[in-house]
Amino acid sequence: MKTKQKIYVLSIILLILLFLYLALGLNPVIWRYALSLRIPKTIALLLVAASIAFSSAVFQTLTNNRILTPSVLGLDSLYMLIQSFIVFVFGSGTLARLGENFNFIVSVAFMVGFSLLLFRFLFKREERNIFFLLLVGLVMGTFFQSLSTFMQVLIDPNEFLVIQNRMFASFNNMNTDILWLALLISFLAVLFALKDLRTLDVLSLGRENAINLGVNYDYMVKKFLIIISILISVSTALVGPITFLGLLVVNLAREILKTYKHNYLITGAILIGSIALTFGQLMAERIMNFSTPISIIINFIGGLYFIYLLLKESKI
């Protein structure tokens, strides 16, 4: 029952932060307008936190490894390639004219399509394991990166600013229409996974034990990988890449909750992720007036935490 109590405490912290974020600095004159800005931002924050926490937790279970995040699939690099390509070929004007909606749909479609192709190609043969898939994803990621670096260097510095803004996740200037679409897609993806959540506990015992306990391992891995790629694509296309948030929150959730059960672990990770993002945004917007995008700070902290994890653990 201790685990449950911790979950309650985390929920309360989140609620307080959310209240602060929404309410701080409101005044009678502009409250209506301010809230109309803040509420969508809050929803986006929670959506991104939940998507990333969920997919990272599941990903770590599938790979049986605490120090990987879905970013090794190469999706972030692909997203940056798409953005660089659009600006490089059509100019930032086109990017603006086409509208955020179009950009969002194209990006998501390409990212999900790429992952499906990758999975399909790799799972055709039995002996190929998930690590093999990751290495291929990484190579593709490096490949995408060299392509986009090439374009970025050629782009005019003013246009480059447009790309740079997209390199780092930001919750400002979000389009509400996309938000609803993103919410819907992510919701459907999670719904598709919901009934198999308990299977994740078994998957964390490794392939052989999972098969022994009656789990269709290969099918489950494929299914969860597809869900992960959808969630990551949607949240990346919505706000931009936040690479190490997942690493940070899932490991913190493990540390705090000390459980192997995924229903707690995932709930905890989502709560911690939401707390981290809300707190970061609160600090950035209301208190410090930070000019640095929140994702850079989170990647920075997440990265340091990763190094700490590597050094602390006696075995990995």
């Binding site: 049986n64 964390s204 015992l205 490794g206 052989e208 034990n209 022994n212 009656g214 789990v215 269709n216």
Partner: peptide, 19 residues
């Protein structure tokens, strides 16, 4: 799969569990 797991079980020699 499930039915099979109720009828036959296997224990491999390497049982390294990460959890």
């Amino acid at each position: 799969y499930n039915d099979f797991a109720r009828r036959l079980s296997i224990l491999r020699q390497t049982n390294h569990i990460n959890v």
